[in-house]
Every structure is written in C-alpha cells, then in structure tokens.
Design a protein around this nucleic acid. Structure first.
Lengths: 197, 197
DNA sequence: TAAAAGTCTTAAACTAGTTCATTTTTTTTC
DNA sequence: GAAAAAAAATGAACTAGTTTAAGACTTTTA
C-alpha cells in the first residue's frame, strides 16, 4: 500500500513501540482526522474542552496559558513528529486553561475522544503504545520540572539550545522567554551575553 | 481469600483502573517483594541503577537530587498508597541521580524490572493499568511544572498546603523548602508571614 | 538525661530577575 | 514597497529570593 507522507509519518511513530498488521494500520488511520491551521490561527482556546489529541506532520505550534496578569507561560513547542494537546482537558472533559496557536502554517492528524476510547477496544495493542508513550513523556517532564527549579535562567537557555537546536531557530525570542519562564527583556540580555562568550 | 493490609491496599489501588480475577490477583502479588526501611535509611542512592518501582503501604519517603553545590532538590514526597522510584533509571537501566530516603519507618511493595516486564506478558491488562496511571501522573506533572514557573514561592507554599494537607504535618520545613525550591531561611519567613495573615 | 546534632528564626548585605520607558530593527500587511 | 505592527535591545530603578552568620529551640542518641 502506498501512503502519503503524513500517514507514513504517524505509522512510523507508532511502530517505534508496537507492531501493527496491515489491517490494524488501516483501521487506525480511519480513526484520525486531518487538520490544517494557518500561522497565528488557534487550534484550541482556553475555556474550550479539548476535542482532540494532535500529531504534527508539518509546521510548529505553541501551547500556553495566561496567568492572572495576562502574561503567557508556554508549556511546549510542538513540531513535526510530536504529539500535543491538553491531555488533562481531553481526559477529564473539563474546560482547558490552554491555548494552542500555530507559529507556522501547520498540518496535523487529530484523534477525537470518541475514537481514542474506541481505539483501545478495537486494537488493544494501543494500550501498550500509549503506556510507553506516556512513560517517556513522564520521564521528560520529571527531568524538566526538577531542572526548571535548580538552574538559573541562563543555564535553562543553554540547555534548551542544546536539547532542541532545531526549534530555537523557528521561534521568537519572546516565545522562548515565555517557555524559559522569564521576561523578554531578560531573555534579550541573556542571549547577548551568551553570544558574547 | 483473606489478605493482609499491604496486599489489600495495592489490589485496591490497581482495581481503580482494571478488574483482576482471583487468579490474576494471586499471580500479581507473587511478583511483588515486601520491603521495610527504617527512618533515615536509603531505599536507593544516586549512582545506582533503580532496581524497583515502589508502592508505599506505610510511612513516608522523600525523593531528591543534589545539585552541583550539594543543595537538595526534592522532587516528591511519597506516603501510603503512592507509587515512587526513579522511572528514568528503572526503564533505561542508566545510573540514577536520585536518592530515596525514608523520613519515617516505612513499608513498601517493590516490583523488579524483570517482574515488571513479565507482568505485561502474563497479565496484559497491566498495560492498561500503567497506561492510565502514567496518564494521570503526566497530567499532575504538567500542571506542576507550569505552576512552578508562574507562581511565587509563597503561592507555591499555599498551594502545597491546600493540595497535601496531610503531608505538610509529616515533613520538616527544611524538606518542604527543598521541594518548593527555596532556602530553608526563606521558607521560615514565608511560614511566619502566612501564619500571621 | 545530658550532650550532640539537627532544625528554626532573625537580620543585614547581596544578586538574579522584573518593571517601565524609549529607541532600533525586523516582520507583516495592504 | 510604504506604512503599520510586532519584536528586540538597552538602561535605570526596583523586588523576590539568597547568603552568611549567630542564637534559640527540638530531637536524637548514647
């Protein structure tokens, strides 16, 4: 079977953890919805209930909340081959506190809550896929939340550059500040300083 | 079948997400190891490879790293009915950077890496159990890592007290400071101030 | 139950990061 | 491709949290 790029990409992603038969692959793809968003468009806004979990096949998006003062706090950047969404809202069906906004024209595959539940009934192998996917994400988050608290902003910036060299060049300094957890002004100072070294 | 308290506690924990038959329960319990640690004793030290994941049936433990300056950063407190360990090291078999130390005489049930892998072969239902367990932990960590970055230390303390009222009274102020991410001196100031309000 | 070890409090001097205000540079839009 | 909008740089005054040091209080241990 000849597949277009987005479908091939998501099947490769899934096959890192589980092996699917041809039939299962077809069944799986039939449960996904293709979605396009233009740069600056919202995939989701705070107050809504997260309808989908997304796999990015092209582009770049940012996931963020606004605090009481209206300052954005970015929790992740998602690019090709990443999963994103607001899992808390997706699972609990409570309103989200997050915005998801495309920072480039982007293409995604979404799985709805209904199809997500169906997926486990129809192809139990996906329990294993998600078990391993969540395990890996958890390991990442634990690392990050401990790092976040023990490093200075400058160290966090250097780590980010090392860990995500491709993402740094695709986002604005302002958004990076929102991710690192500092003001854009201080971000600017750090970058000037680090480049001087 | 009459079970002692620790076994009943862990089966109740598992049955929140999956239903096990009597046979599966017995099989599961046979894969666990009962462990006791005295107050101040280490369950694990940095440099070791995490041999077990632990379920606490009695007591309280802290999980922490030391930064370059030797200052402790506590990533979690684990009490009755909690799971703990260093998942990154347990899964990757790389040396851990964490210490796990009992802050009270404690009793745990451990599952070894060998038995963890065996568990999924013998009782595939556990893929589902861990899928849901990791999903919930992930939701918690995401919340915490965003909170951590956007709140002041005083706000983080107030949140902690609200979320874990029973744990606050079981740990020292110094350890709480290590969790909140501030010095014990500043923790002392915050507590004095908050109590005055 | 006395001594030792660890925890908590207080305070003064310090630093990483913020706030606010202005100018320059880059990107977007029509 | 000019005008408007957004992002980045710079600097001065400010604040949340650190550091160091010393004394009071509690818990552990022999």
């Amino acid at each position: 079977m000849k597949l277009e790029h987005p479908h091939q990409l998501i099947l490769d992603n899934v096959s890192r953890f589980v092996d699917l038969t041809e039939l299962e692959k077809q069944k799986y793809l039939s449960l996904l919805t293709a979605i396009k968003v233009k740069k600056k468009a919202f995939l989701m806004q705070a107050g809504e209930i997260a309808k989908y979990e997304y796999f990015i096949t092209k582009g770049c998006l940012k996931v963020y909340t606004l605090d009481e003062d209206g300052a954005p706090h970015i929790s992740m950047f998602a690019v090709e081959d990443y999963w994103t969404g607001d899992m808390a809202s997706f699972i609990t069906k409570e309103p989200s506190r997050y915005f998801i906004k495309a920072t480039e024209d982007s293409e995604l595959l979404g799985i709805s809550r209904l199809n997500y539940d169906l997926l486990f009934q129809e192809i139990p192998k996906f329990e294993r896929f998600y078990r391993i996917l969540y395990q890996k994400s958890l390991i990442n988050y634990i690392r990050r939340s401990n790092h976040g608290i023990s490093l200075t902003a400058e160290e966090r910036y250097i780590e980010f550059k090392k860990k995500y060299p491709k993402i740094v060049n695709r986002i604005t300094q302002k958004d990076l500040a929102g991710y690192i957890g500092i003001t854009p002004e201080f971000m600017s100072k750090i970058i000037t300083k680090v480049n001087r070294m």
